[in-house]
Design a protein around this nucleic acid. Structure first.
Lengths: 231, 231
DNA sequence: CGCTAAGGATTGTTGAACAACTCGACAAGA
DNA sequence: TCTTGTCGAGTTGTTCAACAATCCTTAGCG
């Protein structure tokens, strides 16, 4: 687990790097990490003065970082009330899966033209997930699974779609944390990823598209079942 | 003596105060409009002090607006050098059309489940384009055409995809301005929009998808031909 | 001709100040 | 009791001035 003091130290160190980016972006990276790791739970208010003091940066700089994360939908900005870690509604989850179906299915439909490098990264993600599953490390399975789907999207060969997918997966992390039992959520899909990979390697774009469609339908249902009661 | 108009006006005024957004967002709206309309040409540097003075706002607030537009890819941020109106490369244009093919084709594929309200807005955009074309108002044709494609995307029933499309079309405006002859670019598609609409109304999702695919291919080619020489 | 150093311009970041707004607590009145 | 008005503490919104960091140009030098 991250703790604030470690973070301050690493931040101070990072700032001495030569290729450094703006402080606002560094802070955004830091906060993003905390949010998708679940350190700051959805609904938590992030107080400007408090965080600015802790990170030893000015409020103005912090506000720039907030803007960035707001645009990524990880933070919610309520005017004159503050910024809060985004709370996703069931409708948000449904929408995210709508987008996934559009972007990911379009990707696998182009299996036939898949570049070797892309195939390799997909394969690697599948293998990583299997390895992690064998070791009962379900958090790692989740990470590998994200990489798998991110790799699928690169079949589209579109930098913009890649970025959209990155943001989408980060947003989904806000939901994953409500899963009490990550194993039950991730386990079924380890084998499915392998099967989907086989279809892609065979150049069966149409079949892969159909397979992925029901794959995503089921994932969405599982997530919504676990999510609705609490929300 | 009070009269009814005074009351209405004061209420309207109060409403604008209540609904008003932050200064940064207002400024972002203003700058976005200028960029989209081509007032500030691609490549133009936007000086912080100069614009902040002109708009009578602080540099900090202006920088927040810059961030917003940077995230929409209308501005390019070069660290320690300033912000510039984005200059799209041919590769950018190709990528934008890749995204369009994914998002728009997925939309029309669902023609069969099209809600009446969506069909109506698509129809309206087609009619507007035809009307504007008849009056030789090619700028209006372009606007109607944008609305047409934006309406197509709503077939996906996804707010996130709607927003992506809005940003995408705004970004494309950066390119449209290089077209010396807007008529030659827009004219061929007025009739095509009508034909595509017919396929959608008939629920021919598959056919509509194929039709739109080649439609977009051709539009991309036309744009790239006009763009490459200058770029 | 190429390299370096200095200077000017612009952005990056800070800290403080004040205005605007939210929200809860409490009092006054129906 | 319920509603309404008022107050005050706390937070965000915005501005301002200052200085540091960086880039670009140009002048001087070998």
């Amino acid at each position: 687990m991250l703790n604030v003091d470690d973070v301050v130290i690493s931040l101070a160190h990072a700032r001495t790097r030569i290729g450094r980016v703006s402080v606002a972006e560094e802070v955004a990276d830091l906060l993003r990490e905390r949010i998708i790791e679940g350190v700051d739970e959805p609904g938590t208010q992030l107080l400007e003065t408090e965080i600015a003091d802790q990170l030893a940066i000015s409020r103005n700089t912090l506000r720039e970082a907030f803007r960035l994360l707001g645009h990524e939908r990880l933070l919610e900005h309520r005017r004159n009330r503050g910024v809060f870690v985004r709370v996703l509604s069931a409708e948000d989850v449904a929408d995210l899966y709508r987008v996934r179906r559009v972007i990911e299915v379009a990707a696998v439909r182009r299996s036939k033209e898949a570049p070797p490098a892309v195939l390799a990264s997909i394969k690697e993600a599948v293998a990583d997930a299997e390895r992690a599953a064998a070791q009962d490390d379900w958090k790692a399975v989740g990470t590998a699974n994200s990489r798998f789907h991110q790799a699928l999207v690169t079949l589209n060969q579109s930098p913009r779609l890649d970025e959209s997918m990155r943001h989408l997966l980060a947003e989904l992390r806000l939901v994953f944390h409500v899963m009490k039992n990550p194993r039950s959520f991730h386990e079924p899909f380890v084998a499915r990823n392998r099967e989907l990979l086989a279809l892609i390697e065979a150049g069966e774009g149409q079949a892969a598209a159909g397979y992925l469609e029901s794959y995503l339908d089921e994932a969405e249902q599982m997530l919504l079942r676990a999510y609705e009661p609490t929300g």
